[in-house]
Computed example of a mutant assay.
Amino acid sequence: MTDFTKEINNCIEVLTQGGLILYPTDTVWGIGCDATNETAVKKVYRLKQREDSKALICLVANDAMLERHVEKVPEVAYDILDLATKPTTIIYDSPIGLAKNAIALDNTMAIRVASDKFCQYLTNKFKRPIISTSANITGDPTPRSFNEIKDHILKGVDYIVNLHHDKKNGPPSSIIKLGNDGTVKVIRE
């Protein structure tokens, strides 16, 4: 079994039990959990010392998984994702099947279709969306690499992926809000 497969399997075991993982995403090192598990999502808020009224991002493996967790994916979303030159997070109206405490107060959810191999395999094999939030305490700068992640975060997760510890973060994802009424708003380029 390759290290890659072993890491995916270890993550799935922790996620299935409601635990937290620290993992390399397509943008930054992230804290993750099962996005359908309210208790696990609560642990993320607690670890980040973040109010649970502040929404989180979740990763999905592909368009099919996205469609299972959003009531109606606007057609323009597919165009945006196809044309994107960097990871792009889209905020959708009316998410379904996700933990209530992961959804914003206005009934929206920020979802990114994973663009790197590790996150795609992980979410695909787990068969559920995974929370993806930066590996820092709320208000602190986002660590630029694994070596900058503070002890509080390292000790607060149940599993740390043993891959890409030498990788520098990529650019943060673009964030675009799409309303079911046809509105498009760029939150972060």
Score class of each variant (00 low, 15 high):
D116C: 05
D116K: 09
D116Y: 12
D116T: 04
K117Q: 10
K117L: 03
K117N: 10
K117V: 06
F118D: 07
C119R: 03
C119G: 10
C119E: 09
Q120K: 12
Y121H: 12
Y121S: 07
Y121W: 10
T123K: 00
T123A: 12
N124H: 10
N124R: 03
N124E: 14
K125Q: 15
K125R: 13
F126T: 00
F126I: 01
K127G: 15
K127P: 09
R128Y: 14
R128H: 15
R128Q: 11
P129Q: 12
I131A: 11
I131M: 13
I131W: 07
S132H: 09
T133E: 04
S134F: 04
S134T: 06
S134A: 13
A135T: 14
A135W: 01
A135Y: 05
N136E: 03
N136F: 09
I137G: 07
I137Y: 04
I137Q: 01
I137D: 00
T138L: 03
T138V: 10
T138N: 15
T138A: 09
G139Y: 04
D140N: 13
D140S: 12
P141V: 06
P141F: 08
P141R: 13
P141I: 12
T142L: 11
T142H: 05
T142Y: 01
T142A: 05
P143M: 04
P143W: 02
P143F: 06
P143K: 11
R144D: 07
R144H: 07
R144A: 11
R144E: 08
S145E: 13
F146I: 02
F146M: 01
N147R: 10
N147G: 13
N147D: 15
E148V: 12
E148N: 10
I149G: 02
I149P: 00
I149W: 02
I149H: 01
K150R: 14
K150G: 06
D151W: 09
H152R: 12
H152M: 11
I153S: 05
I153T: 10
I153C: 00
L154R: 15
L154W: 09
L154K: 14
K155F: 04
K155Y: 11
K155I: 08
K155Q: 12
G156R: 00
G156Y: 07
V157L: 05
V157I: 13
V157Q: 02
D158F: 08
D158K: 00
Y159D: 00
Y159F: 15
Y159S: 01
I160A: 03
I160S: 06
I160N: 02
V161A: 00
V161M: 00
V161G: 01
N162C: 03
L163S: 01
L163F: 13
H164K: 10
H165Y: 05
H165A: 02
H165L: 12
D166W: 08
D166P: 01
D166T: 13
K167I: 11
K167P: 02
K168E: 14
K168R: 06
K168C: 05
N169T: 14
G170P: 04
G170I: 00
P171L: 10
P171H: 07
P171I: 07
P171F: 04
P172I: 04
S173L: 11
S173P: 14
